[in-house]
């Protein structure tokens, strides 16, 4: 791993990573009608994971990120198939009630949100995996 043992980056990462994690969820939840959504939320979370791994290689994600993407695909597919199982057309939005969350505001619950969560997981898994692998690749050549 590259040498990031200056004190600035770890100190900044300690502050930034938790904020990034919360912010990614915030982006995910407000995404249906406002700027945000699963894709961008996933990218933010992936960058948080990568930043954490950069400052402390031992804290790179221990689970297989590709499995995370697989789960995401299944979640997205489930959101598309749910209306089908209920007798409708694939991808028809099913809505059920709404909840209110502080700062995010009203969230309509339904299959589009589930689909967004699926996208979120896929993007997080793929983007983080990609960056981590590329990071380790460059090191091989530098060493």
């Amino acid at each position: 791993m590259n040498d990031f043992r200056t004190s600035i980056l770890p100190a900044a990462a300690r502050l930034v990573v938790p904020v990034q994690c919360v912010f990614s969820i915030y982006l995910l939840l407000r995404g249906h009608n406002l700027p945000g959504g699963g894709f961008i939320g996933g990218l933010v979370l992936a960058s948080a994971l990568v930043l954490r791994a950069m400052v402390a290689p031992s804290r790179a994600p221990k689970f297989d990120l590709i499995v995370l993407s697989g789960i995401g695909l299944l979640v997205a597919l489930a959101s598309a198939a749910m209306p089908w199982l209920g007798g409708g057309t694939f991808f028809t939005g099913l809505w059920g009630g709404q909840i209110w969350l502080p700062t995010v505001g009203k969230i309509k619950l339904g299959t589009p949100l589930l689909f967004d969560i699926g996208v979120f997981l896929v993007v997080t898994g793929v983007a983080a995996k990609l960056l981590l692998v590329l990071m380790s690749q460059t090191d091989e050549s530098d060493a």
């Binding site: 590709i66 499995v67 697989g70 789960i71 995401g72 695909l73 299944l74 597919l77």
Partner: peptide, 11 residues
């Protein structure tokens, strides 16, 4: 698509 998801989970 279902198969891709399953296969990624069962890597």
């Amino acid at each position: 698509l279902l198969a891709v998801g399953l296969l990624l989970c069962l890597r």
